[in-house]
């Protein structure tokens, strides 16, 4: 059956898909992420539809700060790379490296989240509260939803790392690390569209 491991042969090249359980988790994660695309599409569409509904409040071009967004983008892109590195370490059965890359990913994500909170506080001080206008509501909903995903990902990764701090790479936790990295890349993809469609088009368009 798929529910056992042959320890003598060594870690399989794709440990995340070595068991039926792992295969199920892998496919389930992809299906979930595919569903998330349509959910984010609704938030993007709502934002783009309501972008001009500023109701006398601040407009996108008045409030967005490119340097801050650039730093945040670099942080998240780099964290995407570090989680790729973590997965390669996992495939090569290098547990310490896996842990190191994962913790770097978490740290980068946490800094990103810190900047996002700082950004929101800054905007509120400039008169863009959640209830100010339809533009404000839809901006906070979209970027806030992404932030909530980042937060969830951070908690997830931390729990995973703490739980498996001494476990080594097993056929039970390999799919979990892999699925987390898929989720993390997906968050990065969403951010690419947020900085393009929200920030850059809000300023340059």
């Amino acid at each position: 059956m798929a529910n056992s491991a042959d320890l003598s042969k060594g870690l399989p090249a794709n440990p995340e898909k070595a068991t039926l359980d792992g295969k199920n988790k892998f496919l389930g994660a992809w299906v979930f992420l595919a569903g998330e695309t349509t959910m984010f599409a609704v938030f993007f569409g709502t934002y783009l539809g309501l972008q001009s509904g500023t109701a006398g409040g601040p407009e996108p071009s008045e409030i967005f700060q490119l340097p801050l967004v650039f730093i945040m983008t670099m942080l998240l892109l780099t964290s995407s790379l570090t989680s790729v590195m973590a997965i390669y370490a996992m495939k090569k059965n290098q547990f310490q490296k896996l842990k190191r890359w994962m913790w770097i990913t978490v740290a980068l994500g946490a800094v990103f989240l810190g900047f996002e909170i700082y950004e929101f506080v800054e905007y509120v001080e400039h008169g863009l509260g959640f209830t100010t206008s339809a533009f404000a509501s839809s901006f906070y909903a979209l970027v806030g939803l992404h932030g909530a995903h980042v937060l969830f990902g951070l908690l997830w990764a931390t729990l995973l790392l703490v739980r498996n701090r001494n476990a080594g790479i097993t056929l039970t936790n390999a799919p979990k690390f892999y699925v987390f990295s898929l989720y993390w890349h997906f968050i990065d993809v969403v951010w690419v569209f947020i900085f393009s469609a929200v920030y850059l088009m809000g300023i340059g368009g």
Binding site: A167, I169, T170, T172
Partner: peptide, 18 residues
């Protein structure tokens, strides 16, 4: 059986080519 699922591996099964 199931205990193996929680055991780490000593080495990787990858060949040098892989």
């Amino acid at each position: 059986m199931a205990e193996d699922m929680e055991q780490p591996f000593e080495k990787s099964s990858m060949s040098n080519e892989e």
